[in-house]
Design a protein around this nucleic acid. Structure first.
Lengths: 150, 150
DNA sequence: TATTGTTATACTCTATAACTATA
DNA sequence: TATAGTTATAGAGTATAACAATA
């Protein structure tokens, strides 16, 4: 006879609590600009490229191609993104920011800055660096795990 | 003219990456037992109490009452939870684990242990403790923020 | 045959609000 | 009037698979 683990015994639990709060706080800020968190990610990815294929975006963002299509449809409806045919490959499409999308990005980035400051600003520099380093290490490890064994 | 923040400049981004991966990994394990992450949380909360009112559960889990009702409906359909009327207050209901629910909980707790070990086991003890301490501090701070100013 | 992208479907989670019954 | 809980609705995110067009 033994006691079973409590919810609070798992790092995953604490991570979920904090991450959900931070993301929801960010989502509320973005909602004022009529943008969701996933839409912001796609806009930010496109901000660094003149144009990008949906399949490459899906790979970069860790989304499925279907999800990128749906996301792009919404952003196109808001005139933040344009879809164009690839002249070299009849199957391929490319996505790019519109002028409005490019103009909108800095405002959204400022909201992301503000949200991070509100959620983590009171931490010491030491704790912020430690948290970031551990999280980056975990992500790097995940990337390794997803590489097929040679 | 200035560059705007990258996705990777925000702690919220790294937190979301890791938390989503950990939760999805856990969800896949729970799916083998036909349980979702939110259902596990409710089951685990009920495991420590003979019975509990939906409103108290909602408060404890940070869910709305409507969400608890829907979650409870699913768990009742799976014969893991029972709903009963409160004899003292005609408006009130109580939720409790069934024998099957109580029997199921340790297996689910073991999956939670396993998932945490897989996701964080390779970290040093120092890093695991540091991560947990920082996350708990942030949650404590959130709890403070949600208390109305006197 | 394989690949690119879209479309369709479905389910979880989350949030809001209307509603019923009781206090 | 206020409270407890349910019900209805909706949108976001995620996943899978079927599909059309092209390679």
């Amino acid at each position: 006879m033994s006691k079973i683990a409590a919810l609070t015994d798992h790092l995953g639990y604490w991570l979920r609590q904090v991450s959900n709060h931070v993301s929801q706080s960010f989502a509320r800020k973005l909602a004022a600009e009529d943008v969701t968190v996933a839409e912001w990610v796609l806009l930010r990815v496109l901000y660094d490229e003149p144009s990008m294929a949906p399949s490459r975006i899906a790979e970069t963002m860790g989304f499925t191609r279907g999800a990128v299509t749906k996301l792009a449809d919404r952003l196109i409806a808001k005139d933040l993104v344009v879809r164009a045919a690839d002249p070299e490959d009849g199957r391929a499409q490319t996505l790019a920011l519109t002028a409005k999308g490019r103009q909108c990005a800095p405002k959204l980035a400022a909201l992301a800055d503000q949200n991070d400051a509100e959620c983590f600003g009171y931490l010491t520099n030491h704790d912020r660096r430690a948290l970031r380093q551990i999280l980056e290490d975990i992500v790097a490890r995940l990337a390794l795990d997803s590489i097929p064994i040679e």
